[in-house]
Design a binder for these strands. Sequence first.
DNA 1: CAGTATACGACTAATTTGGTCGGCCTTACA
DNA 2: TGTAAGGCCGACCAAATTAGTCGTATACTG
Lengths: 151, 151
Amino acid sequence: MLKLTKKADYGLMALKYLAEHPETPALSAKDVADAYGIPAQLLAKILQRLTKTGLLRSQAGINGGYALARDARQISAYEVILAIDGPFFITSCTKGAHGCELTPSCTIKEPLARVNETIAGVLKSISIHDLVEQEHPPQGGDKKGLVSLTV
Amino acid sequence: MLKLTKKADYGLMALKYLAEHPETPALSAKDVADAYGIPAQLLAKILQRLTKTGLLRSQAGINGGYALARDARQISAYEVILAIDGPFFITSCTKGAHGCELTPSCTIKEPLARVNETIAGVLKSISIHDLVEQEHPPQGGDKKGLVSLTV
DNA sequence: CAGTATACGACTAATTTGGTCGGCCTTACA
DNA sequence: TGTAAGGCCGACCAAATTAGTCGTATACTG
C-alpha cells in the first residue's frame, strides 16, 4: 500500500527511457512499450496524458512519436505522478471546500497533511534526470544522498 | 492515489481517540465506532489487528474494550499503518529475493526506494500523541514544523 | 449462567486499477 | 494524392484491491 500505480510507474519508466535517448527525435509508444515489455496501448494512453499536461511533445505520422518537452532535469517525478494519477492526498478526505463527512475525523488529517507535503516535496526534488543518473549508482560519495529537506 | 486506506485512517483515528481518553480503562470498538460514525464491525477487526501487533491491549467481557499498550508518544503512525495495511513500497516491485519481473524496469525503482524510506521516516517520526496535540494547533511557534529530516 | 465484549474467518459488495477495442485525425513520403 | 505509421480519444471489460457484513466461538463480569 501507499504505492504508485503501475501507470505512474510506466510513465516514469517511459520518461526515463526518453531521457536516455536524447539523440532520437522521437520514439513511438510502441518502441518504449516493447523495450519494457508493457502493453503498448496502455503506455500510449499514458504518454498521451503526459503530452496533454505538457511534459512531452508529440508528433503524429510516420516516424512520429514522443520526446521530452523540457530538459530531463526540469521534469520532476511529482509532475509525472500528478499528471497520471491525479492529485494525491495521504488522507482520505481533502480539506477543500466541503470538508470531511465524518464528524470529528478530520482531526487526524491535519497533521497528516504535513506528511503529505513532505512526500510531495521529496517527489518534487527528484527529476527524471536523477532517475537516469541513479542507474549507474555513484560509487564515491554515495552517502551524500539525493534528497535533503526540512519540514 | 498514494493515499492511506480507510482502514488505516480508522485505525489512526481510533488510536487518537483512545489517547484522548486516558482516564477510561478501556473503550469498546463500538464506543469508538459510534464516536466517529464508522462501521463498528470493521473497526473491531482493525482494533483486533492492532492488538495482535501489540499496539493495543484488549479486554474481553463486560466493560471490556481496548486501551493503548504504550504511551501515545511511543506509538508511531508508521507502526499503525504497517500493522493495518502491511508493508508498503512506493515501487510496484520489491527489490527482495526475486527482483523484478520487468526486465530493465527496476532502474526506476532504486531511486524511488529512497523516497520510500523518506516517507517511512516521516511516518515514524509522528506519534499518536502528535495527532492529539495537533488538534488544537499551536498558535505560537507554529512555523517550527513537526518534522525535520535529511536523507 | 446471562449478557457484553473481543477473536476470527468466510463471504459479498463496492471501488479502483489495469488493460483492450474501435474509430478518427495527422503526417511523411512514394 | 493516397496509404501506412502513428498519435488521439472515449467507451468498454477484466482483474485486483478495499470496504464492509455475517456467523460463530471464546472470554470475562456480575
